[in-house]
């Protein structure tokens, strides 16, 4: 981690921790808590997609595994929430290993379809295995998590809790991509054959990063379960996995900050749209929440067609273009030599 990253990271953390000073409404705090869950899963997915170049359309499944482990172990077996979260992470690691080893031998479209199929199977099981997951009715009365005997029972407390956990996760991820491992992953993204030729153990790297990204997703799922205290299969369908990919792609595949930006933007989008709807209603255009799906698809399509590096990449490209143009104009005014 270089100085620049420290500054960016510190500014981000201070901003997020200061945010509740301006937003005291519990509803909006809740929205931001959900944003943290999505960002958490996005950072993991970005490590896999942006750095290792492996697509996964199945990360919603790992979020579901984390959430269900938390829900089942705390309610049925009376485990403490922390222990259940640890078990959820272990379960995600195990399943990621079982699915990842054969999947990651596949490339591109095959990998995407295999992971999508996996996510769909997990969703079907969560609906059908009524004995364990209570089916579509869901699991109720999941206890709240406690930190040093201090119940996290208000939105504001939970807000600080999840954003601090997210900051730790982001810190780790930023350090990881700046390390030898990160360089190895980017080499795999560039060319697997070349990476392998210079001594990067590509199979091992790909599986390790797949497992790590599953851990991020599982933690996000467990935290979700402890926040809403109720889980059902609804939020964990394959559209959720697709949404996570959308977030990472919209923000910018090749940068963790892009993934964070995409996660924040798309998590807040329904709120922004409903605010915009009020404005539109004033001028006689009726906007319905049903249109959200179209807006999501439209944004993703637009970004992929015109800014394949994502919003974050697009803005930094634009910035460097402007910078170059200014430099060129300055150069013309003061010809050198």
């Amino acid at each position: 981690m270089q100085g620049k990253d420290y500054i960016g990271f510190s500014v981000f953390v201070i901003f997020m921790l200061a945010l509740p000073h301006w937003i005291s409404n519990d509803y909006y705090l809740g929205v931001l808590v959900f944003t943290a869950f999505n960002c958490m899963a996005c950072v993991g997915l970005c490590l896999l997609m942006g750095y290792a170049g492996q697509i996964s359309l199945g990360h919603g499944a790992f979020v579901a595994i984390g959430a269900y482990a938390a829900g089942i172990l705390t309610t049925h077996l009376g485990w403490s929430p922390w222990l259940a979260m640890g078990a959820g992470v272990l379960a995600a690691v195990f399943i990621a290993l079982v699915i990842g080893v054969p999947s990651l031998r596949l490339k591109g479209h095959y990998l995407a379809m295999a992971t999508l199929g996996f996510a769909s199977i997990v969703h079907i099981v969560s609906v059908a295995a009524i004995d364990i997951t209570n089916g579509p009715a869901g699991i109720i009365d999941i206890p709240r998590i406690k930190l040093f005997g201090f119940a996290l029972d208000s939105d504001i407390r939970y807000y600080y809790f999840v954003w601090i956990i997210f900051a730790v996760g982001l810190f780790f991820a930023i350090n990881l991509v700046k390390s030898r491992v990160g360089r190895g992953l980017r080499a795999i993204h560039g060319s697997e054959d070349a990476a392998s030729a210079v001594g990067v153990n590509i199979t091992r790297y790909k599986i390790q990063i797949f497992i790590l990204s599953a851990v991020y997703a599982a933690v996000s799922g467990s935290l979700y379960a402890y926040y809403v205290n109720y889980i059902d299969p609804g939020p964990f369908d394959i559209m959720y996995s697709v949404l996570l990919v959308t977030m990472v792609a919209v923000g910018g595949l090749h940068s963790l900050w892009g993934a964070v930006a995409g996660g924040i933007l798309l998590s807040l989008l329904p709120e922004l749209l409903s605010m915009a709807a009020d404005t539109f209603a004033g001028v006689g255009i009726a906007y319905k929440p049903d249109y959200d799906t179209i807006v999501y698809g439209g944004i993703l399509l637009f970004i992929m067609l015109f800014m394949p590096e994502g919003l974050f990449g697009g803005i930094s490209t634009l910035g460097s273009l402007v910078f170059k143009a200014i430099a060129r104009m300055a150069g013309r005014r003061y010809p050198s030599g």
Partner: peptide, 11 residues
């Protein structure tokens, strides 16, 4: 892949 996914969401 992401473009065809985007089209599918849109449709």
């Amino acid at each position: 892949i992401i473009i065809t996914i985007a089209v599918s969401i849109l449709l």
